[in-house]
């Protein structure tokens, strides 16, 4: 199909993507600036990366963040996948509406409210704040995202595949393990990735639920940023941007290539 691509389209795309990417490009460029003054270019240098590597506080915070993200995203994936199956395949059960409401509500809930309410809960039950409470908080909101990703895959899943497995002698659990799970695995993995990045990014909820000994990277960055632009933060941001974009781009390339290969094989099969 031919689509009419006009000058207007080209211009709006150029300006649109420039707007989306220019700030980040500038950030990356200035992370290699020799000068402490972030707006004046004084030559190329990687010294801020070195500073960053020697900054114990940042490294500690990075380690806490990683731990929290790994544990909470894994927990969220398990719970979120269970919730998705319960919603799509669970049939009717008591309080189903409330359950689906609780799955969708955190997606639109302001972070400040989530954070505040969780903190008040932890205080009410006398739970000391630290890495553990951040993990609890992050698991709670990211399991909802996982659940939405997985349930949309499950909803489009051909029910007769499960019936075929039952017909061929599987118990319902066996059918789920050997047929459903392998097929929805890509959705579960992208759910995990989403939960992981959400946890890495979160500032507000972590601020409410962390204790004095458990500062995460976003909290650290936020307190530094409030004092103004610093080349060290630029360097840190650059590292994070590069890591995340490499991950996302290569993941999408891999899945794109798999789709292309599958299409080609299908076409070859049809041509026989």
């Amino acid at each position: 199909m031919t689509r009419r691509f006009s000058w207007f389209n080209a211009t709006s795309l150029t300006f649109g993507f420039a707007f989306l990417y220019l700030p980040m490009v500038i950030l990356i460029i200035y992370s290699f600036n020799k000068s402490k003054l972030v707006t004046v270019w004084a030559g190329f240098s990687t010294k801020w990366y070195g500073e960053l590597m020697r900054n114990e506080a940042f490294l500690d915070a990075a380690w806490v963040t990683l731990k929290v993200a790994l544990v909470s995203s894994t927990l969220a994936t398990v719970l979120g996948t269970m919730a998705a199956i319960a919603l799509v395949r669970g049939g009717r059960f008591f309080g189903r509406t409330l359950f689906s409401g609780m799955i969708y509500a955190p997606l639109v809930m302001p972070d400040v409210i989530m954070g505040l309410s969780l903190l008040l809960l932890f205080i009410a039950i006398g739970l000391e704040r630290g890495v553990f409470t951040i993990i609890l908080a992050h698991t709670t909101f990211s399991m909802c995202y996982v659940s939405v990703v997985v349930s949309s895959r499950l909803a489009s899943f051909d029910r007769s595949l499960e019936e075929a497995a039952l017909d061929l002698g599987c118990t319902p659990f066996d059918a789920f393990r050997s047929v459903t799970l392998p097929i929805i695995a890509p959705a579960v993995i992208s759910g995990w990735l989403l939960a992981f990045t959400l946890s890495l990014d979160d500032l507000v909820i972590a601020s409410f639920t962390s204790g004095p000994s458990s500062t995460t990277l976003p909290i650290k960055v936020f307190s530094a940023v409030r004092l103004g632009v610093s080349p060290e933060i630029n360097a840190l941001s650059t590292i994070l941007i590069v890591l995340v974009s490499t991950g996302v781009i290569s993941a999408s390339l891999i899945s794109k290539r798999a789709i292309i290969r599958q299409r080609r094989e299908e076409r070859a099969a049809m041509a026989q």
Partner: peptide, 13 residues
């Protein structure tokens, strides 16, 4: 009793 499904329901994996 076994069934052959309309969609074939072949396990894609």
């Amino acid at each position: 009793v076994n069934m052959m499904f309309q969609s074939y329901a072949l396990f894609p994996h």
